[in-house]
């Protein structure tokens, strides 16, 4: 038997030269979709027992420990990322822990693709495609935000700051669109410079 290969949506894409940011596809992260009621103490305890971390309940936050990161998606929905190889084991653990509790845990690793964006120009690039001002407070490391990006549904996770590392998650079928969009808007020379500390030009 031949071995099954994981083909990621952007396996044939490589970032062109001349970009103001570093852009790569994240291929080794698996994703688990977890749903349950945050008011249900049994569910929250069972999830914590399986994951090792308490699920974040504050909107647009995340919690992580080691390889496992829980991203808040909705009051009753979380996206758990972990190494792709560990998805099976973690899912089995979750399902065993959540047995009999009103909840759902599914392997969604292939539903979305994750594009890793790194550099000082990331915020500006993302702002070109969405209505969100990423320079405001509230977009510190750990923040998760679902949004409309380049006319498609997307989610952004601020992995770290200084240098900025963002994970942009889009549905698999939109992967090329998102990639093309960033390629086009992150070109060197397309900076808008409104993030700089320079004073705004006088209004005439």
């Amino acid at each position: 038997m031949s071995e099954a290969l994981i083909i990621t949506p952007l396996y044939d894409r490589e970032a062109p030269g001349g970009l103001a940011i570093i852009m790569t596809e994240v291929v080794d992260l698996g994703m688990i979709d977890l749903r349950g009621l945050p008011k249900d103490k049994k569910f929250m305890d069972a999830a914590k027992a399986a994951l090792g971390i308490a699920l974040p309940t504050a909107p647009r936050t995340s919690a992580g420990m080691g390889d496992i990161v829980c991203l808040w998606m909705s009051p009753d929905q979380w996206l758990i990322t972990c190494p792709r190889k560990a998805v099976g084991g973690l899912l089995a653990k979750l399902n065993a822990s959540l047995e009999g509790i009103f909840s759902l845990a599914v392997d969604m690793s292939d539903a979305r693709t994750i594009i890793r964006l790194e550099g000082d120009r990331v915020r500006e690039t993302l702002m070109k495609g969405s209505s969100i001002d990423f320079t405001q407070s509230g977009y510190e490391a750990g923040t998760v935000r679902r949004m409309l990006f380049g006319e498609i549904a997307a989610m952004v996770h601020v992995v770290s700051e200084k240098p900025d590392v963002f994970h942009l998650m889009v549905f698999r079928s939109y992967a090329h669109h998102a990639w093309d969009w960033i390629e086009a808007t992150a070109m060197k020379g397309s900076e808008v410079e409104f993030l700089s500390s320079a004073e705004a030009p006088p209004v005439v």
């Binding site: 998606m73 679902r146 949004m147």
Partner: peptide
Amino acid sequence: RCDRGCGK
């Protein structure tokens, strides 16, 4: 519906 936020 909070389409691009929490989906509620």
